[in-house]
Amino acid sequence: MIYNPYEILGLDSDFTREQLDEAYRTQRAHYRDLRFESGEVGADAAERLEQIESAYKDLLNTLERRDSGSYDSYAHIKQLIIAQDFNGAQAELDKIDNRDAEWHYVQSDIFFKKNWFVEAKKQLEIAINMDPNNSKYTDTLDKLNNYLASNTVNPDQMRTTSRPVDGTPYNNGTCTGSCCGDVCLANVCANCLCGGCH
């Protein structure tokens, strides 16, 4: 139900690169052929393939961070956050007594993922107070204040990814997704108005 890259690829948090590649290949091969099936089976497989791609990319990033030496004492908590286990992440974070700037940054991340934006901002500000030169903290606060909290951004352009908003093959700008369906449905609904709904 909820996106969890570990669950999608069937991996534990201490996975290796070989295990990741193997899981990715196996899962992908399984669903690649199924996507051409008709009905729900095909649609499910196509959706699953997208999830597999995202999960693979996310876990590759996790692996890179781990291998590049930036593996920090909060790595296991960050993995719990990626796996959407916010209660687990919070419990682990609460166990840490030394509350440095990174602690507050991770706390901010948990709040942010829970859609607790006021609390996320507070924790970010504490992190910046403790380590004002950390650009990761300042950039994140800047994005929070000037993008997510902005009342001037165009809401139809807001995305987490860089996918183009316009010209996607899915959206042709109609109500039903097909011009034909749109006309049919609009016609019957127009009758509704004539029928004195208001």
Partner: peptide, 10 residues
């Protein structure tokens, strides 16, 4: 437009 308002009502 009227059709779209009708859709919501429907």
């Amino acid at each position: 437009n009227d059709n779209e308002i009708g859709l919501h009502q429907t």
